[in-house]
Design a protein around this nucleic acid. Structure first.
Lengths: 193, 193
DNA sequence: GGATAACATGAGCTACGATTCCGTTTAAGT
DNA sequence: ACTTAAACGGAATCGTAGCTCATGTTATCC
């Protein structure tokens, strides 16, 4: 058997557990409203030393990348549900999926920041998930367009743009309501007039 | 004459000149695509020492605040032109002003960053200009609504929200075109369907 | 139960950028 | 010209946050 195909020794139990603790701590801290979270804070929250964080993730960006990847997995699951759903109004199905994804994003300042200002390494780490996102979004967009409910010039790629814009609004909840913003955009997407 | 009303001695000529040099340098550096600019870099570009920057602005946020204030003055001037214009389609007048303001913002990463993530001190410094902005935007919004061209539930306050969202898109020009985003939103604003 | 490779720890190193401080220079008033 | 308060310069300081590494611990395999 070629060496590169051998199953590597599985991670030790404590290591696996700590990895999850770190990710959970990062999610919790980043879910708060403060955009900047230090590695030390994540380590403390996870109940491990900083060294342990760096054993599992080469640097901060890698940790962030992993979180973004997880988040996109959630988005994708939701889009898949919408695709499988089949019945119902295609535009509304798409809109509902966007609303749900937006609601999730609203409580995750970390992903927002990554979407808006993250370095390319963060995106590279979640490359596959992002591509899958665009593919599934394209399915829903195409259905809504075929049904004549979506403006013909709206593209699947615009979905990410819309969500990116929404992220900015979400960052200032004391000034604006992102729901208004989303509904405004949805009206712009809808065919007619 | 009460002391607090006496005209304070005018700023020394070199001081006045340096203040302008600093602001100009800051504008130039912040107009580039990099969101983070150091005080040292601004000072070097202006051809003065860091100490001089701190003589004119108590801290970095104060300098940023002044830049944001200037930017809003530009926005306001444009809105006033649109108000004075009078003739022409009210919705298109509003849309044109938004497009122009957006174009200006697209080349100013500093204001974008301030709009999206700036601390409240930055906004406090530009308080008057921002309020004036909302007042003038309200005039244009009201005209477009009266003409039946704007959705009745669109509010002047939403203008800022839209621009804030646009800012996020502008930050990733290699991925999205903010013009598409703006046109999408404008369609959402327009009455009908 | 002992050997060993993984793993964990956290004080401290390093880099960076904002801000300060004081000796020096200079505009402006007489 | 001379005085002086205002302004300047920029090395040094300070705080912060990412990251490293020498030492101690433990899961796993036999």
């Amino acid at each position: 058997m070629p060496p590169e195909l051998e199953t590597p020794r599985p991670m030790r139990a404590d290591a696996r557990r700590n990895r999850e603790l770190i990710l959970a701590a990062a999610r919790e801290l980043l879910a708060s409203d403060q955009p900047d979270v230090q590695i030390d804070a994540i380590a403390a929250r996870a109940g491990v030393g900083v060294g342990t964080v760096y054993r599992h993730f080469p640097d901060k960006e890698a940790l962030m990348g992993e979180l973004v990847r997880e988040r996109f997995n959630g988005f994708n699951a939701r889009l898949q549900e919408a695709i499988d759903d089949g019945g119902g109004d295609p535009f509304e199905t798409l809109a509902a999926a966007l609303r749900a994804n937006a609601a999730e994003t609203a409580s995750d300042a970390a992903t927002r920041r990554a979407l808006m200002t993250g370095g390319e390494r963060v995106f590279a780490h979640a490359q596959n998930e992002i591509e899958e996102f665009e593919r599934r979004a394209a399915v829903l967009v195409e259905r809504a367009r075929s049904a004549g409910e979506l403006r013909p010039d709206f593209q699947a790629h615009d979905i990410g743009m819309v969500m990116c814009g929404l992220c900015a609004t979400m960052g200032k909840p004391e000034v604006w309501e992102w729901q208004r913003h989303l509904e405004l955009v949805l009206r712009g997407m809808r065919a007619g007039a």
